[in-house]
Design a protein around this nucleic acid. Structure first.
Length: 500
RNA sequence: GGCGCCGUACCCAAGUGGCUAAGGGAGAGGUCUGCAAAACCUCGAUGCAGCGGUUCGAGUCCGCUCGGCGCCUCCA
């Protein structure tokens, strides 16, 4: 017997030793694209093993649209993969419940601001659950953090980076030399006022952004204002994220996520405030997801092409099919929403579900090296893809390659229970990131005893070669959304279009 | 006008200067099955919007052209 100097690890990765010892893969890691440095960087947290992450969340003035949900799902995928890598993630997502939109919506609907925002916050949370998005650690609400925002603004005024005009407070961009680093905008060449009516502002410079805005009479009459040293005002969108991220994650945290459409001005403004206050931050990595398009254009309420999750579910699609669309395009590519796309997702998921079902039917036998090799290969590809800036399309490709190879085995030589467990365990592992597999038993106890009776009667009809009767029962079951499949191992049936 | 992103098969979509341009869907033909379903096999890019350049080698790097999208302080 030979003692190998390196413990033999390097031989374990050869096919020779693929037998009983699991091959040790390197710890999964992550290279993430950082908008600020415009480069893909190896992710390393401030505190080893722990990740602090802030995400721009919803404005709770209406039903969540796919545009919003995409960036939420993208943040969730990042968080899930970091957890897969062994990090403990502290995730904070703000909820904007006090701004022009929420106020206007509450007036339009004739209900109180709180009633409105409570309702749409609940709707938002419901969407998260349906889309299998993990809950963040905190969902701070704007209306509950006014003091922090006022303190931050006072601080900026003291440092002479903010000023008051007619009871509104603005940040003075001219004082902050580094402004524009994130968006890469050159303000000497920019068309100021290209998309905004400058007359509506009292700012010294149109580029200055609002910190607190004086309350209007309509707002005052509805008790929507905060009493501050500047009078009755309400906070701007920009001061909210700066104050709340600082409150829960500190002056500097690891990752800030948002959508590409709010890099400028929103994220830029967050940086400006934080840099002035502490000379850094707030985030060490800026991660931006791309937009959802509909009809070739950015999906937005103002463009009139917004689609809500609720509407999609109303068309008979599942949230899981929506999630599949959102994860099957790379997060830094725009994704075009269409019903066609949902149908493609449905077909892809069906292939996955059928595969899982088949695995769960395997009844006996030991694991083989063949399967171990395939599973190993899949996990390596999966992690390699995820590691490269969360390449979900490629990661899914690895899964489908495994499915095809195992299906071949299932169709020819059959598959042992231990082999199946090996594969299923690997799927459970990657599902902690994908959240797309369903591991329900193939023949769940379908409550309705009628159905079981019908299936049995069809079996009997087939026995006596009464195929007319058998087909009639099958059609009847199909009308009740039950799919029948005859295999050499017996007849299986299930309900089409399962939950999520 | 400025800045940025994108263009890969019928549709969607990966692609790290270097084996035969992943994967999914649709389609065509075949195998299995009473039929169906599922699955499997085979066939679909001599080519990556176009043109030029760099290189031993380019979908990938550089330049120009065409087309699409986003942002340039409303909205989010």
């Amino acid at each position: 017997m030979t003692i190998l100097p390196d413990g033999g690890e390097r031989y374990l990765s050869t096919t020779l030793f693929r037998t009983s010892v699991p091959v040790s893969r390197p710890e999964p890691k992550l290279e993430i694209y950082d908008t600020l440095t415009k480069a893909q960087r190896l992710f390393q947290p401030l505190i080893p093993g722990k990740v602090s992450m802030y995400s721009c969340g919803p404005t709770v003035d209406a039903e969540p649209t796919l545009g919003l949900l995409r960036r939420v799902v993208a943040a969730d995928l990042l968080r899930r993969y970091l957890e897969y890598c062994g990090f403990e993630v502290k995730h904070v997502m703000n909820v904007t419940d006090l701004d022009d939109n929420t106020i206007q919506a509450s007036i339009a609907q004739g209900i109180s601001l709180k009633a409105l925002t409570d309702r749409y916050t609940a709707e938002f949370m419901e969407c998260l659950d349906k889309l299998a998005v993990k809950r963040a650690w905190k969902y701070p609400r704007t209306s509950e953090h006014i003091d922090e925002m006022a303190a931050l603004t006072r601080n900026l005024i003291d440092k002479k980076y903010a000023y008051e005009r007619l009871r509104s407070v603005y940040f003075d961009i001219g004082k902050f030399q580094k402004y524009g680093a994130l968006s890469g905008l050159d303000f000497s060449k920019i068309k100021v006022g290209a998309t905004v009516d400058l007359d509506e502002y009292d700012k010294d410079d149109p580029r200055d952004f609002t910190l607190f805005k004086r309350a209007t009479l309509a707002e005052m009459s509805r008790d929507i204002f905060c009493e501050t040293e500047w009078g009755n005002v309400r906070p701007s969108w920009h001061v909210q994220c700066a104050a709340m991220s600082m409150r829960y994650l500190g002056e500097e945290f690891d990752i800030h996520t948002a959508g590409s459409d709010i890099i400028f001005p929103h994220n830029e403004n967050e940086i400006a405030q934080c840099e002035v206050l502490h000379g850094k931050g707030p985030a060490r990595y800026w991660v931006h997801s791309e937009l959802v398009l509909a009809g070739g254009k950015k999906m937005s309420r103002s463009a009139g092409n917004a689609v809500t999750l609720k509407e999609i579910l109303g068309l008979g699609f599942t949230a899981r099919e929506v999630r599949y669309i959102l994860i099957s395009t790379h997060y830094r590519q725009p994704v075009a929403y269409s019903e066609d796309r949902l149908k493609v997702s449905r077909a892809a998921l069906k292939r996955i579900d059928t595969f899982v079902d088949k695995l769960q039917r395997c009844s006996s036998g030991r694991a083989t090296d063949f399967t171990r090799g395939l599973v190993e290969e899949m996990l390596n590809s999966f992690e390699g893809a995820m590691e490269a800036d969360l390449n979900l399309p490629m990661a899914l490709g690895a899964v489908f390659i495994l499915i095809r190879k195992i299906n071949q085995q299932l169709a020819t030589e059959g598959f042992s229970k231990d082999d199946a467990s090996l594969v299923l365990n690997a799927l459970v592992k990657i599902n902690s990131v994908l959240a797309i597999f369903e591991f329900n038993p193939v023949n769940p106890e379908i409550e309705d005893p009628d159905i079981e009776t019908l299936v049995r009667r069809r079996e009997e009809a087939r026995e006596r070669k009464d195929y007319e009767e058998a087909d009639r029962i099958r059609e009847h079951l199909r009308s009740r959304n039950i799919t029948i499949e005859d295999t050499p191992y017996g007849t299986f049936y299930w309900v089409e279009n399962r939950k999520i």
